[in-house]
């Protein structure tokens, strides 16, 4: 029988601020959001109640599920694209670039975050419009014009604006920490480059890559700006549905239902991803 653990006041003192912070600004608001999902709106005023009408209303509407599956799809797609597009750049930075160049590259990748995401999104108008820069360039080689704004493509471009630098940074940091001798050993034993990536680099980077993909998914899943301004709000994603719901009739309780569904989805995806990331390979102890 072990002795009861003594309360470590010193450790508690240092932990208390973050515990209080989380209670006040995360747990508290989430509980409040759950509570208001049972409230009702009468004459544009939210009234305390405990009714399931908002849950019933939202979860039985076809447009809610259309938005739900579309958001899930487009966020997954953009996370996958971000991971694929980021990989060559991250590979080069991790294995080919000098330490100095890598530091500069990471710094340059952080720079876009210095400006507002909304401003970065609006700047795509100039590039993606039918009369924009990209179509003008394609026109020189006899292609286009292509419709890129107000399409799924526009939405994904917006999401990538948000997630791609992050994906490159996380992949770079992950791969830079791989023991290079393992890669050299694989090559020496006759493993071809692509097989080396598949059998050595990716398994060793699994945790970092899954975390990077998870971040990309979370950011895209909750983003309002890209689907609204570059996707033309068609089809509406869940964040747009939240806005629509609050705008018309001020149905904050119904918006809370949508938000809770989003959170439940993100929790499920996050826990699954983390479990995958830290799962031990078969046969290991």
């Amino acid at each position: 029988m072990s002795a009861p653990r003594r309360l470590n006041l010193y450790a508690l003192t240092w932990r208390l601020p973050i515990i209080l912070w989380q209670l006040m600004f995360f747990v508290g608001p989430v509980l409040f959001m759950v509570a208001i999902s049972f409230f009702v709106v009468r004459n544009y005023r939210m009234t305390e109640a405990f009714e399931f009408v908002n849950w019933e209303k939202m979860l039985t509407r076809g447009y809610f599920w259309d938005s739900y599956w579309y958001t899930l799809f487009i966020a997954s797609l953009s996370a996958s694209v971000a991971m694929l597009v980021a990989f060559p750049a991250a590979w080069a930075l991790a294995f080919r670039a000098s330490d100095n160049l890598r530091r500069w590259a990471v710094f340059l990748l952080v720079i876009p975050f210095f400006t507002s995401y909304l401003v970065r999104t609006f700047s795509w108008y100039v590039i993606l419009a039918e009369s924009g820069v990209l179509n003008a360039m394609l026109g020189y080689i006899g292609l286009g014009p292509f419709k890129m704004l107000n399409t799924h493509f526009g939405t994904v471009v917006g999401y990538l604006t948000l997630t791609l630098p992050l994906a490159v940074i996380l992949q770079t940091v992950t791969m830079a920490n791989i023991d290079k001798t393992l890669i050299e050993a694989a090559r020496n034993l006759g493993c071809k480059p692509l097989a080396t990536i598949w059998r050595v680099v990716l398994p060793l980077s699994r945790t970092g890559f899954i975390v990077a993909a998870l971040f990309c998914f979370i950011l895209a899943f909750g983003d309002f700006v890209a689907p609204f301004y570059l996707g033309g709000s068609q089809e509406p994603t869940l964040p747009i549905l939240i806005l629509d719901t609050t705008k018309s009739g001020q149905q904050w309780p119904r918006a809370a239902v949508v938000a809770i569904m989003m959170m439940l989805t993100l929790f499920t995806v996050a826990f699954t991803a983390i479990a995958l990331a830290y799962r031990k390979p078969a046969g290991s102890r």
Binding site: Y125, A129, N150, G231, G232, S233, P236
Partner: peptide, 19 residues
């Protein structure tokens, strides 16, 4: 026929840039 749903700024830009 519909190419998008816009707020004031989006409507303004959509018409201005010919989208």
């Amino acid at each position: 026929q519909v190419g998008g749903y816009f707020d004031y700024g989006g409507t303004f830009n959509g018409l201005k840039n010919g989208e």
